[in-house]
């Protein structure tokens, strides 16, 4: 039977309203839970860059560890602290949207720095910097944790939106992230070298500034390299200020 156009239009309209209503209802109802998951995820990633949290299953415990051990500041490109944003509201490091910041000019971005405190709660044990960049299909992001010397990598944690599962998406695997541990960002002369993920997998004889690559995911690796180099160079001023010895030590 062939329905009239009026019937089709009315049917479509009702369908649209019902489905639209259902979708927005779901979205509204689940939003608080999703926000909590995202917040937990962020804090997990920050912590994950410096310590092994896989043993902690309880979300509240992770938040407790985070509150106890992590202090945060927000700095500008010159390494100065920012307390309030352009509208006069206080800036919270955890709330800084790295993705939004990525789109604005590097000069005007706010850069959160997370400091993992030693057990005594006074000395900084590790500095954690967020990163953001483009992978092959969509954005990639990450947190890099540096030792007190602000040079040696303590740990790294990557995240991505749509890198190919089994290929580029492997950057989130512990084994891949572990390759960064102990590598150095600055050369012995103190110049910024970054850390490059090389092409291909199974390479040997890698330097202090290179890590083994991912087979079949060269474009993702390139994105990771670019992100690391770009973001760390934005923290240059902060690192220079905080470095334990600002003098360049030359090893001859």
């Amino acid at each position: 039977m062939q329905q009239s156009n009026t019937y089709i239009i009315i049917f479509s309209a009702i369908m649209t309203i019902v489905i639209g209503g259902l979708m927005s209802l779901t979205s509204v109802v689940l939003k608080p839970m999703q926000d909590k998951q995202v917040e937990l995820d962020t804090k997990k990633k920050i912590l994950g860059a410096v310590m092994d949290i896989s043993a902690i299953k309880d979300p509240d415990e992770i938040l407790a560890v985070y509150n106890k051990r992590v202090r945060s500041v927000v700095v500008d490109i010159d390494g100065n602290d920012i307390e309030i944003d352009g509208k006069g509201n206080p800036v919270v490091a955890e709330k800084v949207n790295i993705q939004k910041n990525y789109k604005v000019d590097p000069e005007t971005r706010s850069y959160p720095v997370f400091m993992f405190m030693a057990e005594n709660g006074e000395d900084v044990d590790s500095y954690i910097f967020p990163m953001f960049g483009a992978g092959l299909w969509d954005w990639i992001s990450g947190y890099i944790a540096l030792d007190k010397d602000l040079n040696t990598v303590r740990g790294i944690a990557f995240d991505h939106r749509q890198e190919t599962p089994g290929l580029g998406a492997r950057i989130t695997e512990d084994e891949v992230q572990g390759r960064y541990v102990g590598k150095k960002l600055f050369s012995e002369t103190g110049s910024f070298e970054s850390i490059n993920m090389v092409k291909g997998e199974g390479n040997t004889g890698l330097s202090q500034h290179e890590v083994d690559g991912l087979s079949g995911a060269t474009m993702t690796a390139k994105g990771v390299n670019k992100m690391l180099e770009h973001y760390i160079s934005c923290y240059d001023a902060f690192i220079a200020k905080r470095k334990p010895d600002n003098k360049i030590t030359l090893n001859y």
Binding site: M23, L30, Q34, Q37
Partner: peptide, 16 residues
């Protein structure tokens, strides 16, 4: 699409 979005949203909220 509605059902899939539903699944996706629930996963996001409870199984991130």
């Amino acid at each position: 699409a509605t059902l899939v979005t539903l699944v996706s949203e629930v996963l996001k909220a409870y199984y991130y």
